[in-house]
Design a protein around this nucleic acid. Structure first.
Length: 427
RNA sequence: GUGGAUGUAGCUCAGUUGGCAGAGCACUGGGUUGUGGCCCCAGAUGCCGAGGGUUCGAGCCCCUUCAUCCACCCCA
């Protein structure tokens, strides 16, 4: 029996890694232009970090985490999301002592034990940004615009920005109470899950897609009516700033995030092209989390982008031009093969992409190979060429063959190929 | 966790009532000494997802199991 990868964990093969590289490179460029710096945190953390920050009652913590005991019996968890770890690192390393506003991004795998389906895997990757030390609303708008700009830079225009405010610890409890009261006499009309949620986490009923629940919810009190003046002002300022930036958004009072730590501004970038998995990025403000995890009372806001989903949306529609080898050296006979191998390595040290065949095969098969990998040129070297010290350099596109002096082969080829690169504007 | 669909060559998929496991693409070699793409010829490639059962005989029928995909759910 072959050993296969485990369910929901997949190989990302070369054809696909090219797109990944393009997305990551673009994200790094965009984020660094916005003043963000990369942080790398461990994939494994103490379980408590996630249960405390994400919330015991959430689906993620209650049933989706990869949790196990290590040899000393400590409970560890593969991170299901990035924010908790970054907050932990923020508290632990105290970077705010030198710079009170911290802008950090990270890229890496996350793990959730869900049933895999379109756009959803057990190991998946997020590009993540967090901003600490500013209460907003400018930083809210900055974060959101950065997310939106990233999608534009990647070339994805058919995504929609959804926006909501969840209020703060002053006003959300009043809303929660009103909602609980409203739901109390309607539990019988709710689905099984929502009957449980109605008391444990009533906000999540808004997320339900069951028709009867949708109907109950459609007449439920709306969060915006309960926002306190401060939250109302904050939310309006965020919207004003986005309008100033000409970033279109949709107000969505049903947008409730699945992690408990969010407050005030939440947002999600959605697509209609991925079936049920419509969120390609999501985030929001989490002003109480740093303090909750034992740090100073610093406000923060962040978001995460689902890389697999972005890759799926991009498909083949990316501007990556296939790189081609500059040169293939076709060698015939032992002596030529030895020379070719040495020239190839020397040219690579000079920054050129050069291929040689490992096996000793005929010229025809070497030409085929050169053609298949898309080599721009082939240098043909055999016994005769070594004797006369001149060889043919074939341009595979134009089919022209030039005579090349072999005495100083590496330098001659280097100059010729580099000149051509510059003419073509390649690099 | 619950439902549905699908598992045959590297890929996409045929496979008749149960009777020798196939095609296209891809791959390797050849088509007059050492010149690629097109064309032609030849070749290699499979525990037919796995285990059991029925049968003279199973890719095909029955049972079990695993995997993948899709949906619910959840979220990025």
């Amino acid at each position: 029996m072959e050993i296969a990868s485990i369910k929901g964990f997949r190989d990302i093969l070369p054809e696909e890694t090219r797109v990944w590289q393009w997305i990551e490179t673009t994200a790094r460029r965009v984020f660094e232009d916005f003043g963000f710096q990369e942080i790398k945190t461990p994939i494994l953390e103490k379980t408590e970090l996630f249960s405390r920050s994400i919330g015991e009652e959430t689906d993620i913590v209650s049933k989706e985490m990869y949790t196990f005991d290590d040899v000393k019996g400590r409970s560890l968890t593969l991170r299901p999301e990035a924010t908790a770890s970054v907050v932990r690192a923020y508290i632990q390393n105290r970077p705010y002592q030198t710079y009170p506003v911290q802008k950090l991004y990270s890229i890496g795998p996350m793990f959730r034990h869900e049933r895999p389906q379109r756009g959803r895997f057990r190991q998946f990757h997020q590009i993540n940004a967090e901003l600490f030390g500013d209460p907003g609303p400018k930083s809210d708008a900055d974060m959101i615009s950065m997310a939106v700009y990233l999608f534009r830079s990647i070339g994805l225009d058919d995504v929609a920005l959804n926006l909501n405010s969840l209020g703060c610890s002053d006003c959300r409890p009043r809303f929660k109470e009103a909602l609980t009261d409203y739901l109390a006499d309607k539990v019988t009309r709710l689905c099984e899950d929502c009957q449980r949620r109605a008391t444990s986490n009533p906000l999540r009923v808004f997320d339900c897609k069951v028709d009867s629940c949708k109907e109950v919810v459609s007449k439920a009190p709306s969060i915006d009516a309960f926002l306190c003046q401060a939250c109302r002002d904050h939310f309006e300022s965020v919207q004003d700033a986005l309008s100033d930036l000409e970033i279109p958004f949709v107000l969505n009072s049903r947008l409730v995030r699945g992690l408990d730590y969010y407050n005030r501004t939440t947002f999600e970038i959605q697509t209609e092209r991925l079936g049920a998995q419509n969120a390609v990025a999501g985030g929001g403000r989490y002003d109480g989390l740093v303090r909750l995890l034992g740090g100073p009372d610093h406000p923060a806001i962040g978001f995460a982008v689902g890389v697999e989903r972005v890759v799926a949306l991009i498909g083949d529609d990316h501007p990556l031009q296939d790189r081609r080898p500059d040169l293939f050296i076709a060698a015939l006979g032992k002596a030529a093969e030895r020379a070719a191998f040495k020239w190839a390595v020397d040219l690579r040290r000079n920054g050129l992409w050069v291929e040689v065949d490992y096996a000793s095969t005929g010229l025809k098969s070497q030409m085929k190979k050169a053609d298949r990998i898309g080599a721009r040129h082939v240098l043909i070297v055999g016994e005769d060429e070594l004797k006369t010290s001149r060889a043919a350099l074939r341009n595979m596109l134009t089919k022209e063959q030039a005579d090349v002096e072999l005495k100083d082969a590496v330098n001659v080829l280097k100059e010729m190929l580099k000149d051509e690169r510059e003419r073509d504007g390649r690099d």
